[in-house]
Amino acid sequence: MSDARAWCFGDDVDTDILAPGLYMKGGIESLAAHCLETLDPDFAADLQPGDIIVAGCNFGMGSSREQAVMALNHLNVGAVVAESFARIFFRNAINLALPVVTCAEARSIAPGDRLCLDPARGVLENRTQHRVLACEPIPAHLLVMIADGGLLPHLKKKLKARVA
C-alpha cells in the first residue's frame, strides 16, 4: 500500500461515530456517508481511496455492529492504524479483511502525513516524517484468514475440506 494519506483521530473512537444508529436500518451507502461525521463532517466526502485512519487507543469501542467496519470498507479506507483496538471491532475487521494494525507510536503521525503500510509484515513507513514505525505482527492463525480473504471465504474452504 503506497503513499496513503493519514486521517488522525483521538482515543475511544466509538461505533456510534463510525456507524450512527439513525442510519442503521438503511443500506451501507447512506451509513457510510455519515461515517465519522460527528468528528469530521467532511470525512466521507474528502477521503481518497486507500487513505489510512490513524487513532489512539480503543478504536471501535462500543457496539458489535459490523457496519462500523463495512462503512470503512465501503469508503475504501486502506487500513486503520491505532494504539489499540476494541476487541469486537478488531475481530469484525479481520473477518471482513480490513487491515487493522496496532502501532504503539500511532500518535506520532500527523494529519495528512504520507504513509506506506505493509500489514502482513507489520511495517509502517511515515514518508512525510522519514520514520519507520514498528507495528505488532498479526497472529499467525489470523494471517491465514486474511490470506483467504476474510472469515467467509476461509470457512468455505474449511467446509469444503470437511466434505472432501
Partner: peptide, 18 residues
C-alpha cells in the same frame, strides 16, 4: 461474549468459534 454478524454466521454454520 458479544460478536459481529460475520463471526455469528461462522458460529451458526459450524457451532464453533476460536
Amino acid at each position: 461474549i458479544g460478536i459481529g454478524a460475520t463471526e455469528m454466521a461462522g458460529v451458526l454454520a459450524t457451532g464453533e468459534i476460536w
